[in-house]
Write a protein that binds this DNA or RNA. Structure first.
Lengths: 196, 196
DNA sequence: AGTGATCATTAACATAGGTTAATGATCACC
DNA sequence: GGTGATCATTAACCTATGTTAATGATCACT
């Protein structure tokens, strides 16, 4: 379940659903990844640090989040097994990361050095297609999130969250869900009481 | 300022700031674009229609927006000259567009057929790099927007809007700005009164 | 079983923002 | 210079959500 070879196969099949590339390119890409573990509550990257890796979740739960001037954590996204995460703003802009990424459970992931991927992009231009597809799908995710934040009230966002991350609300404290929804735990509790 | 050749040169220099590609590939890419005009208040694409083009603004102002179940327009983004727009969700998912895109001023743009770009992606794999970069930067924009929606109150979002789109608030009705900020025109008016 | 830690719920009150409607301001057009 | 259209402002009232604090519930550890 958690040894490296299975994680790599999980990654391979994930890539295959995203775009068609010949096996040689995919193998070269996969060879850049190594497996890691991270304890519950640890950060993969913190604000102010340069991003260096692209990652793929094989086990556990990750989140990306900000810390507000008041010291409150604001969760932007949850990452479950089978999904990619990266401090993309940092990687693309070559600036320190504005965002934290960390675990909400003992977790496992594969990571690849972004510079090494960029070298491979040059050697194997077709690989850019994978990068393009990943960025496009990531954009679509953000766009959907933006739509929910602008169009829906907190109660509807909560319902949308439960459909988008089924079962997740039973695995993590509710204040993390409130943070993702952009409300306080108190308000989430009221919303839950209301839905009964 | 607005004839085709200058629009194309504007697009060329925009591409050059995004990524390095050899001239042959860029010329092939540019040759896919044609110039168009759109009157103030017209839609480039409406919800429910399949997206077919990628566009580049050469003049005027575009917006992407949703219409809520109550019939209210919710503006997601403004596009000014020198920027790209596309019904990306529709193009990538091959589903009808969930979003409207239209003008807030008499406007001009270049558009290219997405299928033709995909053919060129296959013939010239390096071109995927441009697509990747565009999607990455678009993602960063959405991520910043998400951060503002989650972290800032409406007054701070208004200040951020003025920095991000300097001068724009003098060119369009304020209710469009309120829509972008996720508040009512009444609330925006209160915020403006407060800032004085 | 008892204790402390952590988190969810509830209540009481405060505030940001929504709703409706009236009032002003600006501008195009006759 | 009036008139209507469009939009911004203001006011009065309402609702969703934030804040603070108290109360419950659950679990881990002794």
């Amino acid at each position: 379940m958690s040894d490296k070879s299975n994680g790599i196969e999980m990654l391979r099949s994930s890539i295959n659903t995203i775009c068609h590339l010949n096996d040689q390119i995919i193998d070269a890409f996969l060879s850049l990844f190594t497996a890691h573990k991270l304890q519950n509550g640890s950060d993969f990257i913190r604000e102010g640090v340069m991003g260096k890796h692209i990652c793929f979740v094989t086990e556990g739960i990750f989140r990306s989040y900000y810390i507000s001037p008041k010291g409150e954590e604001k969760i932007k996204h949850f990452f479950l097994p089978g999904t990619f995460f990266a401090p993309l703003t940092s990687l693309v802009t070559n600036q320190p990361s504005p965002v934290y990424i960390g675990t909400l459970k003992d977790s496992e992931y594969l990571s690849a050095d972004y510079n090494a991927i960029e070298v491979l992009y040059t050697e194997q231009p077709e690989l850019n297609k994978l990068g393009r597809k990943l960025a496009e799908w990531a954009w679509i995710g953000k766009e959907r999130r933006e739509t929910q934040l602008i169009m829906l009230d907190a109660s509807s966002r909560y319902k949308a969250f439960r459909e988008e991350f089924p079962g997740l609300e039973r695995q993590i404290p509710q204040y993390h869900i409130a943070s993702y929804l952009g409300i306080t735990p108190v308000q989430l509790s009221r919303i839950r009481a209301n839905l009964k």
